[in-house]
Structures are given as C-alpha cells and as structure tokens.
Design a protein around this nucleic acid. Structure first.
Lengths: 202, 202
DNA sequence: GACAACATACCGACTGGTTGGTACGCATAT
DNA sequence: ATATGCGTACCAACCAGTCGGTATGTTGTC
C-alpha cells in the first residue's frame, strides 16, 4: 500500500507514542506534533482517533509481519527446531531495546479498549491471532513429526506462546525491567522442550 | 484500616470501572457518579486521581490477599499439591465471571502508567510481587522436597505463573472470551507437572 | 454538663486548560 | 477544473482540580 508522507509519519508516531503512554493517554495533538504534521492532515487521513488506532494495528501487523517473515527461525529443517528458534528470536527482540520499543502495540491497546471500543479490539485480536496462526503452522508440523499422539492442540499452544510473551511484557513494565519478560520466555522454551521430550518417551 | 463510607465506595467503584475501561479512560466524575458521592468527597479523601489509583492498588491487594489466604489450596500437605491446586484455583476464579470481573486491576493499570506515572507503576509492582512471593514460598518448599537439584529458581517460576495469568487476560480481552485465559492456565499447569516430573527422573 | 475550639466528612458550583473534531482556505497535480 | 493533501483557525464538551461552605463529631476547659 502506497502511503502519503503525512500518513506514514502519523502511523509511525502512533506506534511509538501509544506503546509508551497507551491509547487513551495519547492525544491527537501530541500525535501530530510528534509526526510533524497538523491536525488538518490527521483528520484528512483518519476520520477519527479510533480510526487511527485501527489503522495503526494494521500497520503494526505489516511491519512485524515482515520482521518475522525475514527472521532466521525459518531456516531450520525440523519444525521443532523452528519453534525453539522462534522462541529464542522473541527473546533476542528484547535486546538493546527500551520497554516501549520492545513491547507489543496490540497487547497494550486491547487492554484499554476491549470493552469500550469493539473496532480496536477486533483489530488487535486479528493481529494477534494471525501471527499465532503462523506459529500454529510450525507447531502442527512439529507435532506431526515428534508428538503425533499428544493431547494438546497446536492452536492452543501457539496462543499460549503469545500469552506468555504478553504477560512477560506486563511484568517487565511493572518492574521497569525487560529481564522479567526474558525469564518468562525462557520458561516457555523449557515448557516446549519438556512437552516434546515427554511425548518422545511414550 | 477503618474506612469512611464514601472512601470505600470510591475504591470499590475504582476496582470495577478501571478494570472495565482502564485508568486514563476513567474520569473522576464517572467514579463519583458510580460511587454515589460528590467530587468534594473524592478530593477530600484523595489528593489527586493518581492518589486514588495508588490507593486502589493497595485496596486491591487487601481484597485479593484475603481471597487467596482463604483459598483451599493451602490445605494440602505436599507443597507441590498446593502449587497445582493454586493454579487450578486461578482457573476457577474465571468461572461465571465477566472479563472485567475476572481480570487483574494491577496488570491493567500498569500497562497504561508504567512510563508516565511512577507512583502507580510502583504500587502495581508491589502488589504483583508480594502475591508472587507467597507462591514462591510454596514453590521453594516443593522444590526442596521434589526437585532439589533443579536449575530454575522458585522466584522466577512464581513470576512466570503471574506472567501466564496476565498474558491469558490479554488474549481473553482480545477475543472477548475468558476461555483463552483458561487454556493458558492449563498449559501452565502442565508445565509445572512436567517440570517436577522431569526432576524426579534424574 | 455546658460551651468554645477545632477536626473530619462531605457538598456542588466553578475554572482554566485540554480534548476530539470541524470548517474552510490554498497549493499542487492530474 | 477538480480532486487530493495539507495548513490555520476555531469550537463545544469534557477534564482534573479548587474553593467557599455546611453538618457532624471530638476534645479540652471551667
């Protein structure tokens, strides 16, 4: 999608500011100031603040989609290796980043808007589940090869990976330390290893 | 702590409304309307909206502290049984509740305030870690008895339980379905079982 | 036990600043 | 010429917080 400069600048500003201060605490004026455009430009491209949030969720999916598509975890032949490498990749995404830079726009926005703003909630849900689905594909393949008789489902485990990552972000925000998010991802890695290790023993 | 009726009503209103709409989207006027008190009463008891949020976090700890202290998971002799029962108890806390009723005030508030409001962030951190510490005590005992040589720490696993629960809430909010939170808690249960099952084999 | 002095709990009109959103003007490109 | 992209000026609603005031204790003094 071709985008006009002001629109792109506004969306990038939204990713940064909303992840830092949340959706409600982010004002249209601040967004415009940060993007270096005026309010006229804002309401030319977005019919409301809510509309911007929905567009930002879509933009987030675009940006992170490319990031994950280009990530090295795809290079492994064994899907279980891919899964472990994906988890490790999620951990490396915390390195050298501040908390607002490392955390997820969708998880942040949905907390504030799930009850009051169905459109934003749905956009966040779509983004999270579409990413989880790509992980579920990997898990499905890993399960078929290494744990065909396991009782858990690939979809459920994929969503769990996202839950752990999102939950890790919350703890990290609370302590102001991304190490807590890293620790939880490490537990997740161990869980996946134990799950498949256990299945092989049967 | 003895509390005046208006103050208690405001704190109870805060627990409900903030969990529903978030901190920023909750106005002082709405809080007063819901509590059935006036603005004068609000600012008599709290010197600012931020002050109310900090007090609400403390109040949340009181209320949930009693809930967990009276919960049945303490009745087991074996600390590992206690831990599993705690996890199951967390799952039952979702039953028959709406999402705002089931979710955690601290996790919701800290997402919005971690960068812009250190006092609220610290209050949320204190509440989460003090609860996690009670779980860490159980895990420490379970580890001493069943997995003395395990490499993971009780504190880290305790925080991970909280991360999974918080992350489950985010997914539940995104899908508007608490089943997702339940699923993640089930994965957490399996993780703990595998962790100790694995340790016993060594 | 009566009365003054003071504290606590609460009321609700008001304020100055901020909010999301609108109306409209103008330049450029087709 | 007309649609698109953006700037300027503005608005009504709402926001957190203030302030003068009342009603109801509580405490100390004689």
């Amino acid at each position: 999608m071709q985008m006009t400069p002001a629109k792109t600048k506004l969306l990038n500003a939204a990713l940064r500011i909303v992840r830092t201060n949340g959706y409600e605490a982010t004002s249209v004026d601040e967004l415009c100031r940060d993007a270096g455009v005026t309010k006229g430009a804002f309401f030319h491209h977005f019919k409301s603040k809510e509309d911007l949030a929905v567009a930002a969720a879509g933009y987030w999916n675009e940006v992170t989609g490319k990031l994950f598509a280009a990530a090295p975890y795809h290079d492994y032949e064994d899907p279980l290796d891919q899964l472990i490498a994906y988890i490790d990749f999620r951990a490396t995404l915390l390195d050298g980043r501040s908390i607002p830079e490392a955390t997820c726009l969708l998880g942040t926005m949905v907390q504030e808007t799930y009850e009051s703003n169905p459109a934003i909630r749905a956009a966040c849900f779509g983004g999270i589940t579409s990413h989880a689905e790509t992980i579920a594909d990997i898990i499905r393949a890993a399960k078929a090869r290494h744990a065909p008789k396991a009782t858990w489902s690939a979809e459920s485990l994929a969503l769990h990976t996202q839950a752990v990552i999102q939950g890790g972000f919350i703890l990290a925000k609370a302590k102001d330390d991304l190490a807590l998010a890293r620790d939880s991802i490490l537990h997740l890695r161990r869980y996946v290893e134990l799950l498949f290790h256990h299945a092989k023993e049967d």
